[in-house]
Design a binder for these strands. Structure first.
Length: 294
DNA sequence: AATTGAAGCAACCGCCATCCG
DNA sequence: ACGGATGGCGGTTGCTTCAAT
């Protein structure tokens, strides 16, 4: 999948990553963290640009990436956020733990954009938000307000201080305190909107994420995995993806016929915040690949 | 069985914002 | 305050896979 190696300009390799390269990168970050992406390839012994390493890590190797087809809930979230934020894939991805901006962007370009241009109904479980472009059901004033507040919420959460150390963190905290969106979001009006959301109408993907069960890579039910064989040869097909594939959720809601909890457990590769998954340095890469690839 | 075109997606490119000396 | 270095992001490319013919 992806591009094949095309050149070795300046001794730097391009194109698809080999398993060996993946392992080197994975092991290195596992031991040292990524540090400076610029110096990482040299330190790790990779003939790649730092940028390429960062991309590979964030889009594929990161253990907290959730693989497999997008669920109807996720589709709805993407459509909703794209409607309020536009093509801000990073901001959208920040609201969907386990999904990368690249993955969401691809999914939008190849599935949702196409589908939105057709009269086919979108699966919209757990949301009352109408979709822009649906001429038969124009956005109500209330809905538009909700969309505006959803946008505010996303902007505010995107500005939350990261885990950067020391002075940087203080500066971030300063910006954070002065932030317009956060002020708005933390106001009484914002609180009212949050309360409305809690009521069930417009599900926040953040709360959705926090409810997901965290599993170690070795805790996936072997029996379940054994029953999910598939003929697919793509290396990104996890056992979970195999289950989902059988019901092709992109066109139907059959996905919901499966146990939601079981699916979430299967789809959710451990991660949490930051690099806490690295604390457990068990057979890391091999287990990781075993889980991820068929 | 062979061919062809569409779909899917990993990876690259270039611009912009932020950091840091 | 300035400028180079670095990281992040969105758009695009092109290879692989798969379904249709």
């Amino acid at each position: 999948m992806g591009r094949s190696p095309c050149c070795n300009k300046d001794g730097v390799k391009k194109g698809a990553w080999s398993t060996e390269e993946d392992q080197i990168l994975f092991d290195y970050i596992n031991k040292h963290g990524h540090g400076s992406w610029r110096t990482l390839p040299k330190n790790a012994g990779l003939l790649r640009w730092g940028k390429s390493c960062r991309l590979r890590w964030t889009n594929y190797l990161r253990p907290d990436i959730k693989r497999g087809p997008f669920t109807p809930d996720e589709e709805a979230t993407i459509v909703k956020l794209q409607g309020t934020l536009g093509n801000k894939w990073a901001a959208i991805a920040s609201q969907m733990p386990g999904r990368t901006d690249n993955e969401i962007k691809n999914f939008w370009n190849t599935h949702l954009k196409k589908r939105l241009s057709t009269p086919l109904p979108l699966p919209l479980p757990n949301t009352n938000i109408k979709i822009e472009g649906d001429s038969s059901s124009p956005l109500s004033t209330t809905t538009r307000h909700m969309a505006q507040w959803e946008s505010t919420r996303v902007e505010a959460e995107a500005r939350l201080p990261s885990s950067r150390p020391g002075k940087q963190q203080q500066q971030q905290q300063h910006k954070f305190n002065q932030d317009y969106y956060l002020k708005l979001w933390n106001s009484d009006i914002g609180k009212s909107f949050r309360d409305i959301n809690k009521g069930g109408g417009c599900e926040s993907s953040t709360s959705q994420a926090s409810s997901l069960t965290k599993l170690g890579s070795g805790s996936v039910d072997d029996d379940t995995l054994a029953t999910t064989t598939t003929t697919t040869t793509t290396k990104t097909c996890s056992a979970a993806a195999a289950i989902v594939k059988r019901s092709d959720s992109s066109e139907t809601n059959e996905f919901t016929n499966y146990s939601d909890t079981a699916l979430k457990q299967l789809l959710d590769i451990p991660g949490g915040s930051g690099m806490d998954f690295l604390e457990d340095e068990s057979d890391d890469f091999i287990n990781f690949l075993d889980l991820r690839c068929v």
